[in-house]
């Protein structure tokens, strides 16, 4: 039974991926009109263009081109960038870790902080702690992220020069693994800090509501009746039960994380997939733009699938059918 549910989710993800591929094809090959100009730099000589035309199969009918395109996307052969004349895949590969790091750390930190605060608020109903958390949650939800980041830069990188103004690494780069790591972390501190600050509020609010509801349920009272310690009741029973919806929100936050990472990379001039996409889009570099977008969509689809799987592992009600009264 577990398998059936899992394959269902996998199929669904493949469906979304297929839709993304079609969308990519339409956006980056069909829509710009001349499919040629989307792969072949207009500045190439006519002979080079003809050869490349053959190579990329642009003289073939649209449907064949589509399948060729899918093959290219699935094998990550993205061609050459117009702007740099280098293989797009190499460029993307160098930028992927930065973007993933940003997304992963901010997701982890903001959810961890938010969950912890949410639980604390639920356990301290009516007291100051809860009120602060509720306020913080409402406020951070409405601030445009990049504004907060700009203000942080102004405050912590210029007025009080604690952090660097921009970039992922210092120039010139320091020597030695430890120095490089520390330098990188120092550069990533403000971006991650800002994303965490903006993200934790929503989490805290949501978790607080979930916990308050869970703590009022019968099974929590029963857990207490069984003489279990308060900690065990709160974390082992109440919190354990609200884990599935928490994971749902984790899943739903991924597209937002991607967008957040793109903006953050722009604000801090980080070396990531987001800035790559921006440069490509601004410079009409179709191969790069298509590849970057595809990668971001891929990250989204994969994280969604992963979150789905973890959700199923955590909530037995989803993967094992129930028996009705």
């Amino acid at each position: 039974m577990k398998n059936r549910w899992f394959w269902g989710r996998l199929l669904s993800s493949i469906g979304v991926l297929a839709a993304v591929l079609v969308l990519n094809f339409i956006l980056f090959r069909v829509m710009p009109g001349d499919a040629v100009s989307t792969i072949i730099d207009p500045n190439f000589s006519p002979e080079a263009k003809d050869r490349l035309r053959e190579l990329y199969g642009l003289d073939k009918p649209l449907l064949e081109q589509f399948f060729l395109y899918i093959k290219q996307m699935l094998t990550f052969s993205f061609g050459l960038s117009f702007l740099s004349r280098k293989p797009v895949w190499d460029e993307l590969l160098s930028r992927l870790p930065g973007t993933l790091f940003l997304m992963a750390t901010s997701m982890f930190l903001s959810s961890a902080l938010g969950i912890w605060l949410g639980i604390k608020a639920a356990l301290n109903r009516g007291k100051l702690a809860e009120r602060i958390v509720l306020r913080a949650g409402a406020v951070t939800a409405s601030f445009p992220g990049f504004f907060v980041q700009l203000v942080l830069i102004m405050l912590l990188a210029r007025t009080f020069p604690i952090f660097p103004l921009r970039g992922s690494v210092s120039i010139p780069q320091p020597v030695g693994t430890l120095s490089v790591t520390l330098d990188y972390l120092w550069h990533m501190a403000l971006p991650v800090l800002s994303l965490t600050l903006m993200g934790f509020g929503g989490w805290a609010l949501y978790v607080r509501n979930l916990m308050v509801k869970a703590l009022g349920e019968d099974f929590v009272l029963m857990a207490r009746a069984r003489g279990l310690s308060e900690n065990r009741v709160v974390y082992g029973h109440a919190f354990r039960t609200i884990l599935p919806p928490i994971l749902t929100i984790l899943l739903m936050s991924v597209p937002g994380l991607v967008s957040g990472a793109v903006i953050t990379e722009s604000v801090f001039s980080l070396h990531g997939v987001g800035t790559f996409l921006l440069e490509a889009v601004s410079g009409h570099d179709y191969p790069s733009a298509g590849a970057a977008f595809y990668m971001l969509a891929l990250i989204t689809v994969i994280s969604n699938l992963l979150a789905d799987v973890v959700y199923g592992l955590v909530d037995p009600r989803v993967r094992v059918g129930g028996r009705d009264q």
Binding site: E217, D218, F219, M222, A223, H237, R240, T241, L243, P244, V314, D315, P316, R317
Partner: peptide
């Protein structure tokens, strides 16, 4: 019905 924690065996 409601006295068992739903996510525990």
């Amino acid at each position: 019905q409601n006295s068992f924690t739903p996510v525990m065996k």
